[in-house]
Measured scan of single mutants.
Amino acid sequence: LVRYRTISKIPQITLNFVDLKGDPFLASPTSDREIIAPKIKERTHNVTEKVTQVLSLGADVLPEYKLQAPRIHRWTILHYSPFKAVWDWLILLLVIYTAVFTPYSAAFLLKETEEGPPATECGYACQPLAVVDLIVDIMFIVDILINFRTTYVNANEEVVSHPGRIAVHYFKGWFLIDMVAAIPFDLLIFGSGSEELIGLLKTARLLRLVRVARKLDRYSEYGAAVLFLLMCTFALIAHWLACIWYAIGNMEQPHMDSRIGWLHNLGDQIGKPYNSSGLGGPSIKDKYVTALYFTFSSLTSVGFGNVSPNTNSEKIFSICVMLIGSLMYASIFGNVSAIIQRLYSGTARYHTQMLRVREFIRFHQIPNPLRQRLEEYFQHAWSYTNGIDMNAVLKGFPECLQADICLHLNRSLLQHCKPFRGATKGCLRALAMKFKTTHAPPGDTLVHAGDLLTALYFISRGSIEILRGDVVVAILGKNDIFGEPLNLYARPGKSNGDVRALTYCDLHKIHR
């Protein structure tokens, strides 16, 4: 019993810090008490220290592992850092350059016999395009090294910054494609005289377009951006097909006994025919423009016929181009109408809503002055909100995010209106959640004399007048207030005048 009563005193000691020596009952000389009392004092002292730490809000209350900052290894790049964003855009520009100039170089340097010394005699450094290609190869190699040090988000939505895990993730992902696209074939085969082989191998750079397509997928929600990307894709495919079309004609031209190829026909049409040795002929500019003209006309199913396939190889390629053109029509131009419709969806919704308003007016036989006010209010409210119901949009977000959005939407009023000066951010967040926005066209009466005042109004834009009878008592403008002081009276009061809008007004109100 003594032991039980001794232990039962522990909660009292913990909360009230009572010393055991003052209790005459606990001072009985028993061996059990002498053993338990020192333990009680020690526990009391420890609990006292913990309570003191909690009340003082000291940093040592938290466990040590929670006080440590997340460790980022040296030379690790955050995937959302500004440097990584700028670097990704730079790589994107280099990939676009590669997609345009690599097929052009591979096709127009394929057994090209233009006048001038061969590239091997001039030297590697004197070729501007080769120098640019070398810079692109170096940048792609540097990009691989950067990807080995860039964080990523795993399946659990955690940012991984450990170098080993980053390397394994990159090896399992895009490393092989990036490595093949970054191989400097110019340096590996330079001086061997195989410019045709170098041009063909350099087309491996186009593998990076797969990554670019995935990154550009984030802009699919913007109709104008999608339309622009589709047109660029169409032009890029036409450019690639033009390079292939020229390569076919250029390879067949020296081996044909009869002059029936499209390059021969082009030379005869523009007065620059090929001679018996295969030299001469149109310039590279004429060849490229004509090839691009043929691919565009074939892809769009126009086909004027002034550039036509004559050999079997050219006919087979033309059939493939027609098939590609039909697929592009289905996948690209078939979506253009939907994209344009999405661009004008706001206008369509406006006309639909206006039609419903006019049908309501016609069905209920609203008189002319009231009908005009109804239409003007709808037009003004639509121009202010673009038909978007803010309350319906915010309803799907958590309250903390709703408060931040409301604070942002009402920031101008909260910053410049005098009653809100000096208020804490928590108070402003709470008030912003209570605001209701209303609009009024010129001549609209917001409050009639004798109406119950259940709200306090803040003028965000425009001006109003307060009338008693036919006498203008006051004219209020931006950041002015009218209405009933909230919670100042037990019952809502009545208006002693009319409140009429002089201009288009936007008002925020808080109800009782």
Results as ranks from 00 to 15, higher is better:
Y65S: 08
R74F: 08
L78C: 04
Y80P: 01
P82I: 10
P82T: 07
W87R: 01
W89H: 01
L93A: 11
I96T: 01
V100F: 01
T102N: 01
A107D: 01
A107Q: 01
L109M: 13
E121K: 15
G123A: 06
A125M: 12
D133I: 01
I135A: 04
I141N: 01
T150K: 01
N156V: 09
N156F: 09
E157I: 12
S161F: 10
A167H: 01
Y170E: 01
G173H: 13
W174P: 04
V180C: 14
I183S: 04
P184S: 01
D186Y: 06
F190V: 14
F190T: 13
G191S: 09
G191L: 03
G193F: 12
G193N: 05
L197Q: 01
L200G: 04
K202T: 01
L206N: 01
L207W: 09
L207H: 11
R208F: 01
L216E: 01
D217I: 06
E221F: 03
Y222M: 04
A225K: 01
V226L: 12
V226E: 14
F228N: 01
C232R: 01
I237L: 13
C243V: 01
I248Y: 01
Q253H: 03
P254G: 12
Q269P: 01
N275I: 01
L279H: 14
G281P: 03
G281V: 01
I284R: 05
Y288Q: 01
V289F: 01
F294M: 03
S301K: 12
S301F: 06
S301W: 01
V302A: 03
V307T: 04
V307L: 01
N310T: 15
N310L: 01
S326F: 04
M328A: 04
M328H: 01
A330P: 13
S331D: 01
I332G: 07
G334A: 08
N335C: 03
N335I: 03
S345W: 10
G346P: 12
R349N: 07
R349E: 04
R356Y: 15
I361L: 09
I361G: 03
H364T: 06
N368M: 08
L370Y: 01
Q372L: 09
R373C: 03
R373M: 06
E376V: 07
Y377E: 15
F378N: 05
S383R: 07
S383F: 03
Y384L: 10
V393H: 01
L394M: 09
L394Y: 05
K395Q: 08
F397K: 01
P398Q: 01
L401R: 02
D404F: 01
N410W: 01
R429N: 01
L431R: 02
F435D: 03
F435R: 01
T437K: 11
H439I: 07
